[in-house]
């Protein structure tokens, strides 16, 4: 009955904003991964910078603190030669009662080209994309429990380096699915790329209502969920979950859902282990696994910049291309 959902794609099907992995085609996702390959090479040079976005201004608008994500977005923009401004609204105007739209319009007036948004409320990036001036693109750096699309791309990029044929893969996502924007984006991305089986493993208190609707197979037992998988993607458990009625204790969570070498034994022998960070060692993952031979966690971190460079340049390049044909 309500209007059509807002689209992150332009009329030609190219990215105009980057809000969610939901609805992105396999081709678009693969383009991003391929482009990221090229940018990964740039990071290994003496001068880790290309002039692609010279003259453009990227604003990191963070309404929720996150040093790690902010840093990689900032580095990505800088390596593309864009000017970068970091605005932490937790501390500035937002507290003085200025509305979100007022803040946006103030920044728009400064002729920015892209907002990277991180916000604690689901749908915040959509809201901002819907309301910004047409010359601004929005990149979602994580909104509430909804989506964290660049993190999901980092994860599949990492998987692709180890296991290029997605059609044969079994992937288990383990942990707090209900509250995880990363998990939602991961499931969509893995499905779109044709992964054979996506599993979610969690106690029922950490599953959303109707979890199968996300497009994954539900496992309540970690032992069963890990059987014969090629990839294990662990999720961070927020400590605050213990304070509510969702879990009795970190200790019990670790005993049932914490990843140990022993539990990992039922996975395929060459299975890789991932985690979007930051890690709660001894809660969702034991150090012997996190630092072990199957862990690719540090690789994930290093891929963050290339993925974000790829998305930024694809959005800003395409948009300008659409503006000035020929």
């Amino acid at each position: 009955m309500a209007g059509l959902p807002f689209s992150q794609l332009d009329g030609a099907g190219h990215l105009r904003h980057f809000l969610t992995t939901e609805g992105l085609s396999r081709e678009t996702l693969t383009d991003i991964l391929d482009t990221a390959d090229s940018f990964a090479a740039v990071g290994k040079r003496a001068i880790k910078k290309v002039p692609l976005l010279r003259g453009k201004t990227v604003v990191n608008l963070f309404f929720e603190p996150s040093t790690r994500t902010l840093t990689t977005f900032e580095l990505a923009a800088k390596r593309l030669s864009a000017d970068v401004m970091n605005i932490n609204l937790k501390r500035s105007a937002a507290v003085k009662g200025e509305s979100l739209l007022d803040t946006l319009h103030t920044l728009e007036a400064m002729h920015c080209d892209m907002f990277v948004i991180r916000h604690a409320s689901s749908g915040a990036a959509h809201f901002i994309a819907r309301n910004v001036a047409p010359h601004i693109s929005v990149m979602n750096g994580g909104d509430g429990r909804h989506a964290h699309p660049s993190q999901a791309l980092i994860d599949v990029y990492t998987i692709r380096q180890h296991k290029p044929d997605f059609s044969k893969l079994r992937v288990a996502i383990v942990g707090d699915i209900a509250h995880s924007r990363v998990a939602r984006s991961q499931i969509r991305t893995l499905r779109a790329l044709g992964v054979k089986e996506v599993r979610i493993v969690a106690p029922r208190t950490l599953l959303p209502p109707m979890p199968e609707a996300l497009g994954a197979k539900v496992f309540l037992s970690l032992e069963e969920g890990l059987r014969d998988v090629d990839v294990v993607m662990m999720l961070r458990l927020q400590q605050e979950r213990i304070q509510g009625p969702l879990l009795p204790s970190l200790h019990e969570y670790n005993a049932c859902y914490g990843l140990t070498e022993k539990k990992l034994a039922v996975a395929k022998a060459d299975a890789i282990v991932m985690h979007p960070g930051p890690l709660n060692r001894g809660v969702e993952i034991d150090s012997e696994v996190a630092d072990g031979p199957r862990s690719v966690i540090l690789q994930q971190v290093s891929h963050g910049i290339a993925i974000r460079m790829a998305v930024m340049s694809m959005i800003l390049g395409r948009r300008d291309a659409a503006k000035e044909p020929g």
């Binding site: 383009d31 391929d34 482009t35 390959d37 090229s38 940018f39 990964a40 090479a41 740039v42 290309v50 002039p51 692609l52 340049s313 694809m314 390049g317 395409r318 300008d320 291309a321 659409a322 000035e324 020929g326």
Partner: peptide, 20 residues
């Protein structure tokens, strides 16, 4: 590709073989 001066007109080619 990352150094072209017509990026603003023609955009980024989606698949790029990186420099080596």
């Amino acid at each position: 590709n990352f150094y072209r001066d017509d990026f603003s007109q023609s955009g980024l080619h989606p698949v790029v073989t990186p420099s080596d």
